[in-house]
Nucleic acid binder design. Structure first.
Lengths: 307, 307
DNA sequence: CTCAGCGATACCGTGCGGGTATGGAGAGAC
DNA sequence: GTCTCTCCATACCCGCACGGTATCGCTGAG
């Protein structure tokens, strides 16, 4: 089979990113010759040239570009494997749920209460993060996350829809649009929109925002406006108003977890969340509809904890 | 970060599968003591017990079960990385397309012709496989595959719909259902259905089938019947007839490829296939609709080949 | 009680990963 | 042209860790 070793992939990734053996060696905390040798050995074992060595310039070959991309996924998978294994071995089993503060659609208290009432429920540790929430799942740092669809990249994750909400424009009372009964997206031309860490860089050049309080504060200060799900109004300050955005497509709150997860505790949590959301919205028919295979399959197993 | 090494994961996987150090060591072609040590070292580095060693019985801990599952994905990713890299470095760049013989909906000749007319088109190598076609993609052995939706597991793959067809029951002329103008699935109770390698084991206990000719032959011999997409009738023998199955949901022929693929040649192939399929079915609107992000993103790049 | 099975431990050799010193080839300065 | 600087490859050496053999210790079966 002739698989590359993790260490070799780390080395190659460093060189491929730096395009410079000396700097890569420094980054790896080693000297340059063994690094050169390791790359040569990797090339020999794969039977493929990975780098074009001009004496003044190092460049990736086609194969090298492929290995850089594929190797990163291997390294990510290995790191996630280590983290998930360690967490599964903890003496105090618990579920880690990552949320966007204020982004729970008001459902979270009911979900947590209902889950804690389940037999064999584990303590749920909440982690707040504005951006990169799905990254925490992929890295094995969390068991589940509350996200919003449409979402840039849900590959590798399974999901359960919880709640679909219309979107509202949030502005200070004194804003030119505050009196409108509805607006459309074109009305927002020129308005500064929030930008959270990790989100679309090129998009809106507004200030970077890290939590909901800060966001609402900045809106109140007329530094920006935002388009948010309707449930955000539960957490409103007196000086803000929400106006329906008629041509913004509704957003769906989804519970997401790493695909192929097998933890019974996670399965119970997903089931509970779907049931609570279904009860809250009355669409009981949709409940437990779409929780994807792996977790559904283990729903019957005995006990276990977050992995 | 403390990532496990590939070699350690291979060792652990062997022990976890055998639940026996001696047999695992034999399978790995080594002796038992270094294997024991390696597992101990892995456990020390992860800070987690992976195995319960009863003196007569070895069992997986919770953490061990997690690492077994996660480790397999790491090993698969590493093997796929090696294969894709090797293939990208081949002197004769080409695309590998895996098809089910007879399962191309009649579109394949037109797609191949149109693709070869594209600037920078690579030779396309066809690989025929009845079962496990998506496995070849995941393993890095092929660049693209023709599959049918609904499909058991498309995770990790991007897809482009090509053609949606109603399904027909295929029976010999002398069959009791041959004269019907339509049937429904209930009519098939008791009929032996084909079983292809890798497909649902528990399902239909019919003979195992490896290619289309064999399948049609077996149907003609009254050893089985099959429900197949309508385009199958292009390849019919005189002694078979096709009857519409009114309650079988239509099947969609999809072109699938590993997600995050970046080969421009593959992007061109996907574009061409979508265009040909759109032209054939008249639904030009759907063309290039849904070819997912990564490949679409590289459609503009210069040249390259199958990775 | 004895024996057999199996994993852990002890000990040893060698191969490989990593270090230092040096070579050699291309690009730029003059 | 040649001098020099940069940067990767080669040569050589060392220590460790991986793998092998021998043996121990535990435990369950008879």
């Amino acid at each position: 089979m002739e698989r590359p070793e993790v260490r070799e992939l780390v080395y190659f990734t460093a060189v491929a990113e730096e395009l410079h053996f000396g700097r890569a060696a420094a980054r790896l905390g080693m000297s340059q010759p063994p690094l050169s040798r390791a790359i040569q050995q990797l090339e020999r074992r794969l039977g493929v040239a990975l780098l074009d060595r001009g004496s003044r310039r190092v460049a990736l070959t086609e194969a090298g570009a492929v290995l850089l991309r594929e190797g990163r996924t291997v390294l990510d998978a290995a790191a996630a494997a280590a983290r998930r294994t360690r967490r599964a071995g903890r003496a105090d089993p618990h579920l880690v749920l990552v949320i966007k503060p204020g982004g729970d659609g008001g459902l979270l208290p009911a979900i947590l209460d209902a889950y804690q009432a389940e037999p064999g429920a584990l303590p749920v540790e909440l982690v707040c993060s504005f951006g990169e929430r799905e990254l925490l799942l992929r890295e094995g740092r969390a068991d589940a996350a509350l996200l919003h669809r449409p979402h840039p990249d849900l590959t590798g994750l399974d999901t359960q829809d919880l709640l679909t909400e219309p979107q509202f424009l949030v502005v200070p009372r004194s804003h030119r649009l505050a009196g409108r009964t509805r607006v459309c997206l074109d009305d927002l031309a020129g308005e500064p929109l929030p930008r959270w860490p990790g989100a679309s860089e090129g998009g809106s050049p507004g200030p970077e925002v890290h939590d909901l309080g800060q966001l609402l504060h900045l809106i109140a200060l007329r530094r920006m406006v935002a388009v948010l799900p309707s449930s955000i109004r539960d957490q409103f300050r007196d000086d803000l108003v929400a106006v329906p955005v008629e041509d913004a497509e509704p957003t769906t709150l989804v519970l997401a977890w790493p695909e192929h997860a097998t933890s019974p505790a996670l399965a119970a949590f997903v089931r509970t969340a779907a049931a609570v959301a279904g009860k809250a919205t009355g669409t009981a028919a949709a409940v437990a509809s779409q929780a994807t295979g792996a977790v559904a399959a283990v729903a019957g197993q005995a006990t276990g904890h977050g992995g």
